[in-house]
Simulated assay, not measured.
Amino acid sequence: MYQTLSIERQERVATIWMDRPDVFNAFDEQLIADLGAACAELDADASVRVVVLAGRGKHFSAGADLNWMKRASAFTEEENRADARKFARMLRALSGMSKPTVARVQGAALGGGTGLAAACDMAVASSDATFATSEVKFGIIPAVISPYVLRAIGPRHALRYFQSGERFSAQRALAMGLVTEVCERDQLDTTIAQLIEPLIVGAPLAQKAAKDLIAAVDGHPINDDISEETAQRIARQRATSEAKDGIAAFLEKRTPAWLL
């Protein structure tokens, strides 16, 4: 079904493997299309509780494929808009998934590779991983990935790295909030499994509601409007069959329905 990636399923976890190791999983039109389609497929699959985004080979993703960039440089402005919109839609599909997403990062995560890691809810990086928003070195800007990178590292750090294009380490990424965990490369899968274990236990509709809550509340002042928004959201959630079952399961010391 997919030309540039494969999907590996293990119990309730699905891993999207970008599979262009010969070009360090750099993305082009096809990989963008495949990633968007894979996100849609897995988001619609109720048997999948967590999605991991990974890259085959030594590197997570070196960003944009140079041949794709060369083609884009010859595009008209309107053609460039259409091309960029496809990339933007794919990142929104990844970021907007209704279930937890984890980036598995090793080696280089450059340009759009940093954007992919930022678009996931969480990211685990090997200690030798490196990141960069390197677009300025090519005379362009990290426009499409900016909402996700800004959400992760904030505007102050973005002002430095968007303008310098310099690489930064996994430890620096951890300190800025881009990365959730750092470990040795041979411990990536173990560390991700430990991160996933409590995610599997959470109620799926509540997890989606939690993601929506963060998007609705973040950046807003604490005032009457935001207080009413939060009250409305918890009231709606309490009324769901999932919440009723979850509370009853806790009181009755039984397993909730979503774990059966």
Rank of each mutant, 00 (worst) to 15 (best):
T191C: 08
E79I: 04
A46N: 05
D224C: 09
I32Y: 10
I196L: 00
G63H: 06
F250Y: 15
A54H: 01
L213K: 12
E197H: 02
Q207V: 13
K211F: 13
H59R: 03
F250L: 14
G111F: 00
A123F: 07
V149N: 09
Q171S: 02
K137L: 02
S241I: 07
K244S: 09
K86E: 15
D186A: 12
T133Y: 01
A125I: 04
K70Q: 15
P155W: 15
I222S: 02
Q194Y: 03
G113T: 03
L66G: 13
A64C: 12
S146W: 11
A206N: 14
I145G: 01
Y161W: 13
A64L: 12
W17D: 01
F75C: 00
V217N: 08
R85T: 12
A109Q: 07
I153Y: 14
D83L: 10
E79S: 08
S169W: 02
G139F: 00
M176H: 08
A243K: 09
G246W: 15
K211A: 12
E11K: 13
A40G: 01
Q163N: 11
L259Q: 10
D28N: 10
S73M: 10
T191A: 07
T4P: 06
T130R: 08
D186P: 06
E29T: 14
T101C: 04
